[in-house]
């Protein structure tokens, strides 16, 4: 038997959130997400949570599970100690149960102009980018915008204008792309008051990232580039 202690809040019914417990027999290999579906389909069909791909690539199901921000789909029940406490992402308004309002998170992302600003007009075929140049951006590509880093970041908790690890990582992805011509503008933008220098280098984002990305390192690189004007 396993016990899930799930954060519950229904804006139509509750003034305050509460925890509700559910017990069931997990099968071998069952994930937290499969457990939540088990509850939804068998024990309590009023439960709200997000999910889609169930293979750690869509970013829907980041939540706080036994003290760590992680993807519910990628987390096996058997590695955790029961009761398993499940809360929504932090620093974001709760809509219902485990579903939070990600608007601030996505707004910050859009602020950094998250699209290629071409350096030159496109050639007839592809831009030529060497294997080495492509390697330079390889570590910044896999963000699935799940929000685990944002939820874990104490600066995001205090400063709702702070761009956040996800947006800054994306900024570096373009600064480092040999095809992008917006480096100067991008660096200027991320060095403003709510940008890279608000980061306290606490490494939470790096610790929780379910795709093993390192936003702390990305932010440090942006700081270096800003200080030494290397871009």
């Amino acid at each position: 038997m396993v016990e899930f202690r799930v954060f519950r809040f229904d804006p139509e019914k509750n003034k305050e959130p509460e925890f509700q417990s559910y017990e069931f027999d997990p099968y071998k290999g069952m994930t937290i997400l499969e457990g939540l579906y088990y509850i939804l389909e068998n024990l309590d069909s009023s439960l709200a949570f997000r999910s889609s791909c169930r293979e750690a690539v869509c970013g829907s199901c980041a939540m706080h599970i036994n003290g760590i921000y992680r993807l519910a789909c990628k987390t096996q029940i058997e590695i955790l100690k029961s009761p398993i406490t499940i809360r929504p992402l932090s620093h974001l308004p709760v809509i219902k149960d485990l579903v939070v309002d990600l608007t601030p998170f996505f707004n910050h992302f859009k602020e950094i102009k998250p699209y290629l600003i071409p350096k030159e007009s496109p050639p007839e075929k592809e831009y030529i980018q060497s294997v080495k140049e492509r390697e330079k951006i390889n570590d910044w590509l896999d963000c699935i915008l799940c929000g685990a880093c944002y939820g874990s970041c104490p600066v995001c908790a205090q400063d709702d204008k702070y761009l956040g690890p996800h947006a800054l990582l994306k900024a570096l992805r373009f600064v480092d792309d040999s095809r992008d011509g917006g480096a100067k503008e991008r660096i200027a933008f991320v060095t403003q008051n709510s940008g890279v220098f608000r980061c306290h280098t606490i490494f939470n984002c790096r610790e929780v990232c379910p795709k093993d990305l390192d936003p702390t390192k990305a932010i440090a690189k942006l700081k270096l580039k800003a200080v030494f004007k290397k871009f």
């Binding site: 699209y115 496109p122 030529i128 060497s130 294997v131 492509r134 373009f174 792309d177 992008d180």
Partner: peptide, 13 residues
């Protein structure tokens, strides 16, 4: 051209 990070051949294609 829109920035999709395709893997590359040794010639950069």
């Amino acid at each position: 051209h829109w920035g999709c990070p395709f893997s590359r051949t040794p010639e950069g294609k």
